[in-house]
Design a binder for these strands. Sequence first.
DNA 1: CCATAAGCGAGACGGTACGTCTCGTCTTCCG
DNA 2: CGGAAGACGAGACGTACCGTCTCGCTTATGG
Lengths: 205, 205, 205, 205
Amino acid sequence: MVAVMCSRKGRPRSAEADSAILEATRAALGELGWSKLTMGEVATRAGVAKTTLYRRWPAKSELVVDAVAVLFDELELPDRGSLAADVEGVVIQFAALLERPETKTALMAVVAESTRDEALRARIRTSIVDRQKRLVLLGRERAQTRGELPREPDTAKAARTADLIFDVIAGAVVHRTLVSAEPVDEEWARTFTALLLGGLASVQS
Amino acid sequence: MVAVMCSRKGRPRSAEADSAILEATRAALGELGWSKLTMGEVATRAGVAKTTLYRRWPAKSELVVDAVAVLFDELELPDRGSLAADVEGVVIQFAALLERPETKTALMAVVAESTRDEALRARIRTSIVDRQKRLVLLGRERAQTRGELPREPDTAKAARTADLIFDVIAGAVVHRTLVSAEPVDEEWARTFTALLLGGLASVQS
Amino acid sequence: MVAVMCSRKGRPRSAEADSAILEATRAALGELGWSKLTMGEVATRAGVAKTTLYRRWPAKSELVVDAVAVLFDELELPDRGSLAADVEGVVIQFAALLERPETKTALMAVVAESTRDEALRARIRTSIVDRQKRLVLLGRERAQTRGELPREPDTAKAARTADLIFDVIAGAVVHRTLVSAEPVDEEWARTFTALLLGGLASVQS
Amino acid sequence: MVAVMCSRKGRPRSAEADSAILEATRAALGELGWSKLTMGEVATRAGVAKTTLYRRWPAKSELVVDAVAVLFDELELPDRGSLAADVEGVVIQFAALLERPETKTALMAVVAESTRDEALRARIRTSIVDRQKRLVLLGRERAQTRGELPREPDTAKAARTADLIFDVIAGAVVHRTLVSAEPVDEEWARTFTALLLGGLASVQS
DNA sequence: CCATAAGCGAGACGGTACGTCTCGTCTTCCG
DNA sequence: CGGAAGACGAGACGTACCGTCTCGCTTATGG
């Protein structure tokens, strides 16, 4: 039973508008980049008035978070038979996502903005970051089922380790892609995964 | 006959202005954050005309890169006697640097901006990123001298490994600090270093 | 089967709404003035939906004309025994009406608006201006009965003279009140009336 | 000796911009009328940025006062040989001025606005109203020189009379033109002048 | 030793985008 | 079916910065 909590009176908000806006935001991000993206441009592209935009999103950064969040949900953990192969696969997928112009320009910008805006940071975590931790948890579960990893009885430690793994994977791939501006190819993914899993073994033992 | 000497005539540029501008930029960054930082504000704080500012830096992003670059040069690799201790030390230092408000807000912003501006990316690499790789190289050298690490005869592979290490360290610390917004304390540094060095052993063997 | 009867079914229009709207318009005019008066504000004050308001009045100016017209109907020509006294009385009354904030701000504004809107001009004449000419006609009739003024046999000329008197009285009082921003006190009224009646004598002779 | 009071520093304001703006304002007023006149439109027509407009005039109403004020300075009191002829001439001129679309729409609008804005009222008086009183004073002087009018020894009373004459002339012509929307032709001017001068005689005796 | 030339502060300039406001219309549901 | 509630497309508002452009200084060399 979900509480619907609707206002009940007056004309309801257009659902089409929402998706048109998010779609337009992604397109404009890809073409113009974060700093040249304007609310007015998004409104025009979406065929919507500026007021409609501001009624739903108070700021550019929040709009962009929502617009790109859905892209991150496309990430999957394909079962390739071994933990290493699974990690390599997700690393490649993640890097491919970061190569898309709308993601590339948006991600660092909203993180930068979030350093001064607690609400924005929360939105980023809720809409993007925390939802990808599922991949780490699922990967571990699968590896444990396969017997590749031992089960950690201390749940607090297990959670800390998952966070560490997430920071290492996401951080390294983002840094390689956006800062070093080098490609994340099969070879890099293999080497990186070897480092991660090798290191993990030493940490857990 | 080409005149070899340039900028001989006319009033020379004020050296004080340069440092006042960079100092003002850092201060304003800390107080206002990237997105509210304006060229006009920097000029006012530095007691300088906008013209003077634009004569030296064509854009906000380049100014900010120069303003924060010097902060990164403060990072050192103190000799703590073991590779692990050295790495832990530099991780803590790096995290402390990222906690400073001017660095925190500036770094991600200029990286975001650089996704659409090749010249800016180059400037970031030259002024900030590449200069910190010296820490990785120095650390490895020191560890090899101590006998903690073998010498890699294949120089190309050695370079690739250094890049990987750099991406992993910088990426993980940045992600932990700015995205996860969790503190990089002694414990995290120890665990992360264990993972990194443990993984490195498996990669190199 | 076409429904033959119209406006039989459905909820009839609220008569209360009309007076609430006009009352709210006068109140808002007094507080905000013409230029800050908005349809939305009137609707809110009247406890009425904007739709209801627009269904009855197509534009702000027409609403305001109706709202203030009723105030002008309060003007009377009290029988003070002589033509001069009657005129003085009506001049004072008219000036007092123009001192009310809602009238003051509304009258000139709708006249200004009417310079570009023939329908509005007609509405103003019908609702406000022409209805006050009765005062001129009544005053003349009374003066003729008293023998203070001769009867003009040429009805066209009589009408022209009435129009002239009306323009002079209304124009002078409005100009004194709103443009010169000087008070219309007993003395001014007496002097002005003397000028008017004295002049009238020379015109008619 | 006029105090020049100039800022001396920085780029001086463009004198061309001022006249282009006022000219554009008059043109736009004539075409669009007061209520459709926008600051942006004026700026565009003048080939000027909105900021430049707002730097000089804080509001539409003040801009319009300045724009139309100059038109009122065109009024003259031509010497036609007799007081009556002079008055008739100025009445016709004034009416012709009020028939121009830019004046017609602007005058009542700024007066309406001034009922809520003391500074605007002052500006109107300074820039428009008081400057036309010269016509009354000059006309009287000329009539006195001709011997058509006696010299009034009581200067305060003389001033009050001049104000009265001004309110009557300006008020009647404005009312006839803008409210009654009837033409001020030769005949009306003659009748009105007869009334005014006849009345004046009774007042002054 | 003063002409030349660049740098400097101040601030106006033509622009662009902002985020808000009001307009007049259009759903929606309630009575 | 009238009415309240309120979302909608449109577009003006007045402000903030942008990066450029005069201005009238100031400070260096170099003829």
